[in-house]
Amino acid sequence: MTVARFWREIPQRYNLVGTKCETCGAVFFPPRTLCPHCRRDGKIVPCKFSGKGKVMTYSVIHSASDQYFDLKPYVLAIIELEEGTRVTSHVICEPDDVYIGMPVKSVFRVLDCDGPDGVIHYGTKFTSDV
């Protein structure tokens, strides 16, 4: 990932800042600039999510790409945030401990590094909130 691309996404990666349509109330993550329901009648504003949610579904990754080699086996899940939108993220737990419906909360972690001499990409992962 280029330095500039990651830098532009820092607000959403660090603090789960998405968007909300003030016209219909729909929330979006990653942020959308146009509401797909209200179109030109929609009014999009930034929306910071609480970081609380639950696991909708998950997969345990045993064959990881190079940047996640150290993490395997790891849990990748689709999480429904309490505000209603969904996000794909790592869940930090033993693979045997994750289950559909598991309450989770956001934590701040290293997502990956651009090699040993490149930029460290920080961001949000999730952990059990039981």
């Binding site: 150290d70 701040f108 460290i120 920080y122 992962k125």
Partner: peptide, 16 residues
Amino acid sequence: PDYDENAATFSVEAAR
């Protein structure tokens, strides 16, 4: 530390 933790992530968690 976990694989994906360092002094920066500890600092953020403590500050939050």
